[in-house]
Simulated scan of single mutants.
Amino acid sequence: MLKPGITYSHEHIAIDLSGIKNTDDTRLDCMEETVREFKDLYEKGVRNVIELTNRGMGRDVAYMNEVSQLTGISVICSTGFYKEPFFPEEVYSLTEEELTSLMVKEIEVGIEDTGVKAGIIGEIGSSVDKFEESELKVFRAAIEAQIKTGRPLITHTSLGTMALEQVEMFRNRNMDLDKVIISHVDLSGNAEYILSIIRTGVNVAFDTIGKENYQPDDLRVEMLKKICEEGLSHKVLLSMDITRKSNFRYKGGIGYAYLLDVFIPKMVEAGISKQDIRNMTESNIRRILLQEER
């Protein structure tokens, strides 16, 4: 259930990529610290988190539910498959139709035996500058699941690449492009490229905020200001995509609240209006999820 208030549109509460990444840092199993940070987010107006840990990524719905119950923040769970090399075996052994059926079942019936229905398809990913064949298979299956259920589809772009190629796949199936959110476009560092994506009709997410080892946040603000000046803030979402324990405050990281405490004040200082910020943090995701008109 989407509550009125701020939504973090691309996060991970319980995720385990440690087998591929070969580091325990990418296993989020720090319940106490997550609850502490989420209670802080609640005090600052956050009411919803879109949780994009899907099949094969260490998804733990019971864990997510406990965080939600202890903090008051609504967690919207996802279905789908990530990207190479993080796919579970079923991506290779099942047909596209069977993969679609799995996703539809998790949306309409529930995830495993939890009774929790997925509200989002995602994050569905492509590799840097290319689609692997297995990724194309997942995209085709996810597109069919989106068409069957009407649920929004959130994609992953590796370093911001392949966004326009993803859009072309959606166009070929006549999808409602306003139900698509293309993630990590801020990693491209290219405002004109991002504007070209938005102008196709899809939504985009600046959702690696605070990860300055990829792009400086000042550049993110500069790109967002240009998008707002073009009158397109209604097509942008904000989030942080925290996937490592080292991102948490108890480990000396920036923490989930960085978006609110540091980044949004930078946007205000740059002259981005409160209405544009409200669009990116509250209104847009409601439209996408609930078909509310802006």
Rank of each mutant, 00 (worst) to 15 (best):
S78A: 15
G231E: 05
V236D: 06
E66A: 07
L232N: 05
L94T: 02
Y63A: 03
I50V: 15
D217F: 06
E89D: 14
I182D: 01
I197Q: 04
Y214K: 12
F206H: 07
K226N: 02
M267K: 04
E112Q: 13
Y214E: 13
N54L: 02
P88F: 05
E11Q: 08
Y63D: 04
M57T: 13
I285L: 10
T26K: 10
V61F: 03
I242F: 13
E66T: 12
I264Y: 02
T200L: 03
G125Q: 04
A205M: 03
P152W: 05
F139H: 09
T155A: 08
N174C: 09
E97G: 13
I121T: 03
L28D: 09
N65T: 12
M175R: 11
S68N: 06
R171S: 02
E106L: 09
A142F: 08
E96Q: 14
E192L: 12
F263N: 05
G110D: 07
S18R: 01
F81V: 01
T7C: 09
E230L: 03
K148Q: 14
N172M: 12
C30F: 11
E212N: 13
I50M: 13
M267D: 04
D276G: 01
G253R: 05
K235N: 08
S134I: 00
I277Y: 04
G255E: 04
L260T: 08
N172S: 14
I147H: 09
H10R: 07
